[in-house]
Amino acid sequence: MANVSSDKPNIRQVASIAGVSHMTVSRVLNDHPNIKPDTRRRVLEAIEELDYRPNLVARALATQRSRRLGVIVESPVAFGPNSILRAVEFAARAADYSVTPIALNEGDQLSPQDAVESLITQGVDALCVIAPRSSSVAALRRISISVPILVVKADADPTFLTVSIDQHAGTTLVVDHLVALGHRDILHISGPLDWLDARARERAFHSRAKSWGIRERPIVVGDWTADFAYDFAMGLSRLPDYTAVFVANDDMAIGFIHGLHDKGFEVPRDLSVVGFDDVPLARHFLPPLTTVRQDFTSLGSAVVEMLRAAIEEREIPTLTRIPTEFVPRASSARPREMR
């Protein structure tokens, strides 16, 4: 290998060490598909040897791209949306992209159109929308958007790219687990049904429960907060007829268990409770919470890869749903009448 200059390395030094043209180095840096594996390897080794850092401003001028993704995230303090945003930021950084997020909170004056216009003005190459409400998606359809846009939602969409955690499969795992334990009367506490993830879990619950012949019981529509579920549990005048509760997220599940405890009921002796998310404290709660783990890291990588493919006019990856993992713990057990 050639001696490394003490000056700040440049693309032509990388090309000289790798034995290629500077245009080939540029193609490797931009993930051009028509590069031989051996050539790519030599270029990457030269980059590592020189500790070369591309001039992002020069690259943006050459490609007319900013290598920046705009992200619109609803309720960013909630566990799911915040986890997805962090995963997208991490995956984007690994791909040499930056992320500019804008938060939409309920009651804010900022509209989806305001958010889109702000990000487009900042020169983003593509847009991602995290944890959308159905009203937000409807608003996006009415906006003319000049860059690729991806919406993190469970159902395919003719207007946008989509990718999501497989909400249907995760919910199916919950119902199957409770049925296997012997439960035939299960209550569902959902999230707000304007939220697409909440709607997807609610529909999947009813579909799977019906296939098992479980009693049809009206759902309780929550607001994602532990306080809501705590108050609902405190409103119970007696032990209910249902023997298990599927709660649409872990925060509400933990609040519900807390309320049951304060009412003198015990989980899982009196009621089994299952959540969704696997928040970090779920395994340390008493009892440790049975739940569904979402692979946010894989979701973030899929978001960035799909948007990069769209930006670079490559074939879009076909994977649109990320598998979930069921995590059984001590908050679910056989129904009380079977003990």
Rank of each mutant, 00 (worst) to 15 (best):
Q13K: 14
I17Y: 08
G19K: 04
V20C: 05
V20P: 06
V20A: 05
M23I: 08
S26P: 02
L29C: 09
K36L: 12
V43Y: 05
L44W: 11
L44G: 03
L50T: 15
L56S: 10
L56C: 01
T63L: 15
V71A: 09
I72Y: 00
E74K: 13
P76G: 00
R86V: 07
V88Q: 06
E89H: 06
A95W: 12
A95Q: 09
P101Q: 02
L104W: 10
D108A: 15
P112C: 03
T121I: 05
D125N: 06
A126T: 05
R133K: 06
S136T: 07
A138M: 06
A139N: 14
I143E: 08
S144C: 01
I145Y: 05
S146W: 00
V147G: 00
V151L: 01
V151P: 00
V152F: 15
V152N: 09
A154E: 15
T159G: 04
L161M: 10
S164V: 02
T172S: 11
T172M: 08
D176C: 07
V179Y: 15
L181H: 12
L181W: 09
G182S: 09
H183L: 01
R184S: 07
D185W: 08
I189V: 10
S190T: 13
D194S: 15
L196S: 06
R199D: 12
R208A: 03
R208C: 09
K210C: 03
S211Q: 09
E216R: 07
E216T: 10
V221E: 14
G222P: 01
F232I: 13
A233P: 04
R238E: 07
D241Y: 01
D241K: 05
A244T: 00
V247K: 04
V247A: 05
N249D: 13
I254H: 01
H258Y: 13
H258T: 11
H261K: 14
E266Q: 08
D270G: 11
V273S: 05
D277A: 03
D278L: 11
D278A: 15
A282I: 12
H284F: 11
L289P: 15
V292K: 02
R293I: 00
R293T: 00
V304W: 03
L307E: 14
L307M: 07
A309F: 00
A309Q: 01
E313S: 09
R314H: 04
T320V: 11
I322G: 00
F326Y: 08
F326H: 06
S331W: 01
P335I: 05
R336N: 01
R339H: 08
